[in-house]
Write a protein that binds this DNA or RNA. Structure first.
Lengths: 361, 361
DNA sequence: GCCACGCGTGGAAGCGGTTCCATTGACAGC
DNA sequence: GCTGTCAATGGAACCGCTTCCACGCGTGGC
């Protein structure tokens, strides 16, 4: 293991000089610098990052706290982060979070520059207390897909996205629009689903449409769960003509359920997702696109700035634009239902509709 | 920043004693231990990992070298790795690799315990020279989805997988089976595609089936490319009745192309993938399942053993079982083609088959 | 010609742990 | 009662780097 002392000896200089060369200090003569660089070359010397970190009080590492398993979109965001960090000299340490315990554990140990020089917290609502501790510890933090008082963040306007999606369905003529989303009190406190639901509810209300009880269903962020929930919706007498799922993963579950029930998408039921993860293009899912990759890249860039700048970054919230991506899972609702009746006598008759299965054999 | 000296002072002991307590040395009396632990508690002391690492020559970090962007399967494997590491006290550092330069750069700096205590190299054929350097440097290495002389590895039998897939298609009655895979001389030297191709070729040969020129196409591991290549296949006079793609991503591209051409899957063309990534279940893709998550978990487990054991791990190659997952993209070939003729006079006539488009309107 | 000045440099003092070595004191064996 | 042993502990050295301080020496200004 060749150390700085070896290089110094080989070049006939002091260790301090070698260090200065390594750190591009201007206070080294050209001839000395050349000798040192030659010695480094010959000995194939590489500074020990641990020693350097100990000495300088920083460790050339950025931590990314991320619910890696929970959301498909996290991976795409992470890709953006990796892309941004590639050019930097920082290593990326991954802290996976699957439970509040997990989260608090990591956040507690990460309040120190010797663990990570900066922190990117992704999709994870962070307790204000933790955020405050981080702030006072001087470790720069950037939030991605979540917000916090006085901390820079890169976010999506989920409420607006929810509106966008719902408006699209209403514009197509749907009136019976159901929603499948995240539990508002899910363990990690993800809020995106709830915000999207809010956008949905607002838009429905604005249009003067009632959301029947049971039209909004919640469950863990998993395809299979969404599928099960959709089955409930499809079994209703006032079956929705459109389902807005709060994420693409869930929308895929909805698609499965609808098709398994022998119904046609979008002939009988329109389906909307949210995120535009890679699969969605393949599945032909109409969805609200949010720039996942770019959001990761941007957030990582902000963090790099903050870390290098030494001064606290401006705590602005950067909101990335969203857009509707219309593919092939949405269309006008099936024609001619005795809707006026349904509306008038909400819970009345037993009008079974046996012809429902015409979509596919 | 509270240091070990603060704790020692607070507990009225020497720094060495605190260190012994921290490291669970038995040579500390119970009363002293209690005092020290109390002081740690009161001061909320956390050892500086950098200092500890510098002192002990290790850093409680495992490096994962992975072509993060290139393969969808890498993410699933990474999930397995993360899961295995969750229980350990090691941090995970991600080294993304997208080019040979990238790879060599990382591999060169990682030959030291101060960078990572162990290395997991994923899907990345590693130059023997790099492997040798790593071995002599004493950093334990485990390979995942790639092999190397004298290094433990977790692999899939890709050749056998290729056979499995091809046999499945032949068993269904297909004779015109095409293959879409990776370029054998792709920049990073991925070999999985080539091995799968080998399995395909062997099986075809065993069955006495000729692989016409142009029936095997190569291109980057991307859906869009596979789609384009498939268009070539579909335009042929001797259009294949089945396409085996060397990965699910590529198979999805094949599916797109076939459907875009107005053909039915599996009515006109059967499609097989490889990997069984999460999407495939949704897409109903028949594929060869390899346990991606488990492979990551196993490899990470081996690495943890090796790192903790201090002795070089037995360099065994662990081969995980593969299995065929039959879904809805494979079926017997369309009936009644004048096949005997085709076989006999390979390049002869101009027999156009205008009835080809019967699959869908 | 002398003195400040400043550049280039060597070397020591940390950074915060671990570990080895020496010391102390209790206790057992003679 | 003295010595040998051993457990418990304090403290110094060290891990490899950065950085500060001090020093020597050339230079320019008076």
């Amino acid at each position: 293991m060749v150390t700085i002392a070896d290089v110094a000896a080989h070049a006939g200089v002091g260790a301090g000089t070698v260090s200065r060369v390594l750190n591009h200090s201007p206070r080294v003569s050209d001839t000395t610098r050349a000798r040192v660089l030659a010695a480094i070359e010959v000995l194939d010397y590489r500074p020990n990052p641990l020693a350097r970190g100990l000495s300088r009080g920083r460790c050339q590492t950025l931590g990314v706290v991320v619910p890696f398993f929970t959301h498909a979109s996290a991976v795409e965001r992470l890709r953006g982060v990796v892309a941004a960090l590639d050019a930097s000299h920082y290593d990326l340490v991954l802290f996976n979070v699957e439970s509040p315990l997990h989260r608090d554990e990591h956040l507690a140990t990460l309040t120190r520059r010797d663990r990570a020089d900066g922190l990117l917290i992704m999709s994870l609502p962070t307790p204000p207390a933790s955020l405050a501790r981080l702030a006072s510890s001087g470790v720069p933090v950037v939030l991605l897909d979540t917000r916090g008082e006085g901390v820079p963040a890169v976010v999506t306007d989920d409420v607006e996205g929810g509106r966008l999606a719902t408006r699209h369905l209403l514009a197509l003529g749907h009136e019976r629009v159901a929603f499948i989303g995240d539990d508002p009190d899910n363990p990690l406190g993800f809020t995106a689903g709830t915000s999207r639901e809010q956008g949905y509810r607002e838009t429905m209300a604005e249009a003067g449409l009632r959301v029947p009880a049971g039209y909004v269903l919640h469950g863990p962020h998993v395809r299979a769960v969404a599928r099960r929930l959709t089955e409930q919706l499809l079994a209703r007498r006032d079956r929705p003509t459109a389902v807005f799922a709060s994420s693409d993963s869930q929308a895929l579950g909805v698609l499965e359920a609808v098709r398994a029930a022998g119904l046609d998408v979008p002939g009988d039921v329109s389906v909307m997702g949210f995120d535009d993860v890679e699969v969605s293009g393949y599945a032909g899912l109409t969805t609200v696109r949010q720039p996942l990759f770019e959001s990761g890249k941007l957030a990582a860039g902000l963090l790099l700035d903050a870390v290098d700048a030494e001064h606290p970054p401006d705590a602005r919230t950067h909101q990335l634009s969203i857009e509707l991506v219309e593919r092939s899972t949405t269309a006008p609702p099936p024609p001619a239902r005795p809707r006026s009746r349904t509306r008038a006598s909400a819970a009345g008759r037993t009008d079974r509709r046996p012809a429902e299965q015409e979509g596919k054999p």
